[in-house]
């Protein structure tokens, strides 16, 4: 997809929050939603179950206005984390410009994190995208939990971040690390976009 359209002067970035179930993807979006001025954000579309589990996906459009003469929009998506919604995940991933992998810092969730990361890789591959080339950042969420329950960011880096992408510790519920993550992925996406249009 064309990220930068020089004719209509538009920049559109699709960023997908990926990760195992209950890792806090929707929470990230909610926090961002709460911080974006009303005039800048669209309606957040959330299809959730009775128990607030994401059923299909969340969608948050953000309009950053005119930047360098370009009308700039970010589209933030989350995928349903549960294993059995893989078809939806794959669908949402289509055309993604960047991926935020939201990991669960709890020690007992490590396997789910790994499994989801592998799932991300294979789903990207199905769209013909190499995980090594797409902008990706990791967020280790729930760092506010008691230390005995969670792994430190360094341990999580060792376990999950074998590609050495930017990683952030976060407490999405209270907003810590949410915008850092978003800034980082935006930068990666926009840089790639610049390189892409130069080619």
């Amino acid at each position: 997809m064309s990220l930068v359209n020089f004719t209509t002067r538009e920049i559109t970035c699709k960023i997908v929050y990926y990760g195992p179930g209950r890792s806090g993807k929707t929470t990230n979006l909610h926090y961002i939603y709460g911080r974006v001025p009303e005039s800048r954000r669209g309606r957040m579309v959330s299809l959730a179950t009775q128990t607030d589990r994401t059923l299909f996906f969340d969608f948050l459009p953000i309009d950053l206005g005119q930047i360098s003469g370009f009308s700039t929009r970010f589209q933030l998506y989350t995928v349903p984390g549960q294993v059995y919604y893989n078809a939806t995940r794959r669908l949402v991933l289509q055309g993604a410009d960047g991926v935020v992998f939201v990991g669960d810092s709890q020690a007992r969730q490590l396997d789910e994190n790994l499994e989801s990361l592998q799932n991300l890789q294979s789903n990207l591959l199905e769209h013909g995208v190499d995980i090594r080339t797409i902008p990706l950042v990791l967020q280790y969420n729930k760092q506010d939990l008691p230390l005995e329950l969670i792994l430190s960011p360094a341990d999580l880096d060792d376990a999950l971040n074998f590609r050495g992408v930017p990683s952030f510790s976060a407490d999405a519920l209270h907003g810590k690390g949410v915008f850092e993550t978003l800034k980082s992925i935006s930068e990666l996406v926009l840089k790639k976009l610049a390189a892409g249009t130069a080619a």
Partner: peptide, 30 residues
Amino acid sequence: GGGGGGGDEFGEFLADVTVTVGKAVEAWRA
């Protein structure tokens, strides 16, 4: 962390993106 100071975080994000987009689209200048 409350709703009151929320514009700040977004403002910073916007400033960041502005710089990055600036650099990105300025690539045509190069």
